[in-house]
């Protein structure tokens, strides 16, 4: 059972990738990409988790309490921000694709390029 978080991270990655590969709509593809990215959050946080430790905020606990790793949490924060910005840019590109190719189906776009 103690490897369940890692298994979930691997599953999210693979299932998100499956969605990207079989996607027929660019917006659908981008949302699948966020699923892939959520796999990295689960993995990072699972690595930093210490059983029985408290969240790394000392506002209401004594300073010598064991805490879970703040470093991976800071990394995950960066990850979440980057996900939001990457999706924003990709949505903009999806609009451009509709404008240029008249479709948001990745297959049809690929076909048009020949």
């Amino acid at each position: 059972m103690s490897f369940l978080p890692y298994a979930v991270a691997a599953w999210l990655f693979l299932v998100g990738l499956y969605g990207i590969v079989t996607s027929r709509h660019l917006v659908h593809l981008i949302v699948c990409l966020t699923v892939v990215q959520s796999s990295s959050y689960v993995l990072l946080l699972a690595i930093g988790y210490l059983a029985g430790a408290q969240a790394p905020v000392f506002a209401d606990i004594p300073p010598d309490t064991p805490i879970v790793d703040p470093v991976v949490q800071a990394l995950t924060l960066t990850d979440v921000v980057v996900e939001a910005t990457v999706s924003a840019l990709l949505f903009g590109l999806a609009l451009q694709a509709q404008k240029r190719f008249g479709t948001v189906n990745p297959d049809e776009i690929a076909a048009m390029k020949g």
């Binding site: 959050y41 946080l45 699972a46 930093g48 988790y49 430790a53 408290q54 969240a55 790394p56 905020v57 805490i67 879970v68 949490q73 995950t76 924060l77 979440v80």
Partner: peptide, 8 residues
């Protein structure tokens, strides 16, 4: 939150 990461 269950992973004790309120910030995230």
């Amino acid at each position: 939150f269950a992973f004790q990461a309120p910030d995230v």
